[in-house]
């Protein structure tokens, strides 16, 4: 397991760890109550984090194992 993959923990810790802080209706963001926005925000962020991991992951260098 290479170091860049440790980033995969971020969505678990960030999203679930800060849930009690996010469990509220206001402020509304993008028309959504805060908790729903929080869920949506982390979906997008998770994708961004995965993209970063993919880019720097040495496992993806060279040709794909067939």
């Amino acid at each position: 397991m290479n170091a860049i993959k440790l980033l995969l923990f971020v969505p678990f810790i960030g999203f679930l760890g800060l849930l009690s802080f996010a469990n509220k209706v206001e402020p509304y963001i993008l028309g959504m109550p805060f908790l729903l926005f929080w869920v949506a925000f982390w979906m997008v962020l998770a994708s961004v984090i995965l993209m970063i991991v993919y880019k720097f992951d040495p496992d993806n260098e060279g040709s794909d194992s067939e």
């Binding site: 993959k5 969505p11 998770a46 984090i49 993919y54």
Partner: peptide, 20 residues
């Protein structure tokens, strides 16, 4: 209500886990 958010929440986290 909001309890339903568990569905997309577990799905996107499953994808994060799946990368590894």
């Amino acid at each position: 209500g909001a309890a339903a958010y568990y569905v997309p929440a577990y799905i996107f986290l499953a994808y994060v886990l799946s990368y590894w």
